[in-house]
Each structure stands twice: as structure tokens, then as C-alpha cells.
């Protein structure tokens, strides 16, 4: 069953270094296609590192593997992904008249995609 979360796309040093190696390298692709989930949420949803999850909102969706966020980096209820093609799929065109679409703190739903495997 899908659950509501808040998604924070952001930069990581791994994203920065692999970006320089090239956007078509395996390293970059993996970095922007891995969703970090808080340990408590991983446990509650019975997810394991590498399990596929589908994240969606009214704009779009992506399906990527998830990993447990380091230590207490993420509070429960929050997801993190490196900026890139996947996070952009959930960004709508409306900028509320300021030029900047909502790009962080996005309301999304997450559901396990294991069943469709």
C-alpha cells in the first residue's frame, strides 16, 4: 500500500564526482537512481537494501532501488535522492510566479515495487 512521504532531492559528493566522470557513466546513473529511506521506515515497510520502490506524485513517477540512509541522517517520513533525471520527473511546471518549481520538500507516495518484479 502506498504511503505519503516528503522527498528531498539534493546534492551529494558522490553525485558531484560522478557528474564529472560523465552523465552516462554507471557511477552517476546509480547515484541519481538510488533512494535513501530512513532505517525506521525501511523496517516498518519490510524493505531491504536494493529492493525496488515506486515513488510518485500527481506529476510523475520513478521506480528505483532503495537503501537505508546512514545513521540518523534522515528522520522517518522523509526520503532523499540525488538530483537528476528521476527527481525532475516529480517536479511540476508551476513556479508560483517566481521561476523556481517546487524542487525540494515534495509530497510523494511510496510503494514497494517488489510485486511487479
Amino acid at each position: 500500500m502506498a504511503e505519503p512521504f516528503i522527498l528531498i532531492p539534493g546534492r551529494t559528493s558522490q553525485q558531484g564526482t560522478t557528474l564529472n566522470e560523465g552523465k552516462y557513466t554507471e557511477g552517476y546513473r546509480v547515484e541519481i537512481s538510488t533512494l535513501q529511506v530512513a532505517p525506521e521506515d525501511m523496517q516498518r515497510l519490510e524493505l531491504e537494501d536494493g529492493d525496488l520502490v515506486r515513488v510518485y506524485n500527481d506529476v510523475g513517477e520513478f521506480t528505483v532501488p532503495c537503501i537505508t540512509a546512514r545513521g540518523d541522517e534522515l528522520p522517518p517520513g522523509m526520503l532523499f535522492i540525488s538530483y537528476g533525471d528521476n527527481s525532475s520527473r516529480l517536479m511540476g511546471g508551476d513556479t508560483q510566479g517566481c521561476g523556481m518549481p517546487d524542487s525540494k520538500g515534495l509530497d510523494v507516495f511510496l510503494e514497494t515495487a517488489k510485486a511487479s518484479e
Binding site: V59, Y83, S88, M91, G92, G93, T95, C98, G99, P101
Partner: peptide, 28 residues
């Protein structure tokens, strides 16, 4: 602003210098 003139379908050509909006702009 770029995001808006593209998402609203207004711009009819683009000159893009050292940037990759195709991978970081909104889907529309």
C-alpha cells in the same frame, strides 16, 4: 524565467550554454 516559458510551451527556440536542462528541469 526559463522553466516557465518552456513549461507553458512559449519559447520557440533555445540557445543553451553550458547547462543541462533536459536532465534537471521539470517534466513539462
Amino acid at each position: 524565467t526559463a522553466s516557465d516559458v518552456l513549461a507553458r510551451g512559449e519559447a520557440d527556440a533555445a540557445l543553451i550554454i553550458a547547462s543541462d536542462p533536459m536532465s534537471n528541469f521539470s517534466q513539462p
